[in-house]
Simulated scan of single mutants.
Amino acid sequence: MHLDDAAARCAEGGFVWLGLFEPTPQELTQVRAKFGLHALAVEDAEGFHLRPKFEHYDSGHYLAILRTARYDDKREQIDTGEISVFLSDTFVITVRKGVASELHEARSRLERHPELARTGSASVLWAILDHTVDCYAPVVAALDTDIEQIEATVFSGVVAPTERIYFLRREASDFYRAVHPLLAVLASQLQPAKWPAELLPYFRDVYDHLVLVSEEVAAQRDALGTILEANIAVISVEQSKIALRQSATMEQLTIFASIFLPLSFVVGFFGQNFDWLVTHIQSFPIFAVFGIGGLILPTVLLFLWLRRRRKERSTEEAAARPLNSVRGVAGGLARQD
């Protein structure tokens, strides 16, 4: 239907549902001129809002802004959109933005309830709200699946990609900002004087579904926060294991270096061409005493020193265990008090 024909039908007392998808500012200006929309309402419809809202203007028009969402399985990402609903007694104008703002199902839903359609434009608002909230449920289910996969990875002791956890938490937070503020908006519309009595039970039903979705999304955000902390703990454990392996390797290398250090000194000393060394070491017994003995003696002394240090370390660790146990018991008693 052409815009002029739609405006003429409203002027004759008929009812029109006009749908616009990502209109240009010029198109919105034409719609405003034909239907007498408030300038602030049109300005709100041109922008993109992070939070739903519901406004009533003195001209008798209403503006409802809703956030829509759908889950893309291939990209594992939530696509969001926005629907601005201009409402009056003779027309409903919907301005859709984003791929997640399809309203065909809302129209079909209203056609299946002709008794509600006879109540006027408020029935269109109900159909749009009901369809929008129902589309939240698949998003919640898809997020649950992703969270369960990450939980199984993290709590099995395997490090999960931290980037994916952050990404899911951001997606859940954005989804929560789209869902939770709608509770207050919808709750303000549940008063008996607001809408026809036949529609109030249907609005309450939408509100009940929205409460469940909001609670589930809030629980998902908390779960992702816990998973992130657990994943950081797993990363810390893995880093500690790597540090311990590196420390053990460095200890072994240090021991080897400590063994060869005195040997290198002895070999270097006796390798000097001093006259005394050249003229006095002329037999195997003397070579065995000064040469081989000079190598064995520091090796034995180093072995005895390392063995003593190991015993001292074992004694210190054994003495520290009872002290840590006492501190643990004392800490438990203090928490009980």
Score class of each variant (00 low, 15 high):
Arg9Glu: 14
Cys10His: 05
Val16Lys: 04
Val16His: 02
Trp17Ile: 10
Glu22Pro: 01
Thr24Pro: 01
Leu28Gln: 06
Thr29Met: 08
Val31Asp: 07
Arg32Lys: 12
Ala33Arg: 14
Ala33Gln: 11
Lys34Leu: 14
Glu43Arg: 08
Ala45Cys: 13
Glu55Lys: 11
Tyr57Cys: 03
Ser59Phe: 10
Leu63His: 02
Thr68Pro: 04
Thr68Trp: 05
Tyr71Ala: 12
Asp72Ser: 13
Gln77Arg: 15
Val85Ile: 15
Phe91Gln: 00
Gly98Gln: 06
His104Gln: 15
Leu110Ser: 06
Ala117Trp: 09
Thr119Gln: 15
Ser123Phe: 07
His131Asp: 15
His131Glu: 14
Thr132Ser: 09
Asp134Ser: 13
Ala137Thr: 13
Val139Leu: 05
Val139Tyr: 01
Val139Phe: 06
Val140Glu: 11
Leu143Phe: 02
Thr145Arg: 10
Ile147Asn: 01
Val158Glu: 08
Thr162Asp: 15
Glu163Val: 07
Ser173Glu: 10
Leu182Glu: 07
Ser188Cys: 03
Gln189Lys: 09
Ala193Met: 09
Leu200Asp: 02
Arg204Glu: 13
Glu216Ser: 13
Ala218Gly: 07
Leu224Ile: 00
Thr226Gly: 07
Ile227Leu: 14
Glu229Thr: 09
Glu238Pro: 00
Glu238Trp: 08
Gln239Phe: 04
Gln239Tyr: 03
Ile242His: 10
Arg245Ile: 05
Gln252Pro: 01
Ala257Pro: 07
Leu261Thr: 03
Val267Tyr: 02
Gly268Trp: 04
Ile281Val: 11
Gln282Tyr: 00
Ser283Asp: 10
Phe284His: 02
Ala288Cys: 11
Val289Asn: 04
Ile292Asp: 00
Glu312Cys: 07
Gly328Phe: 09
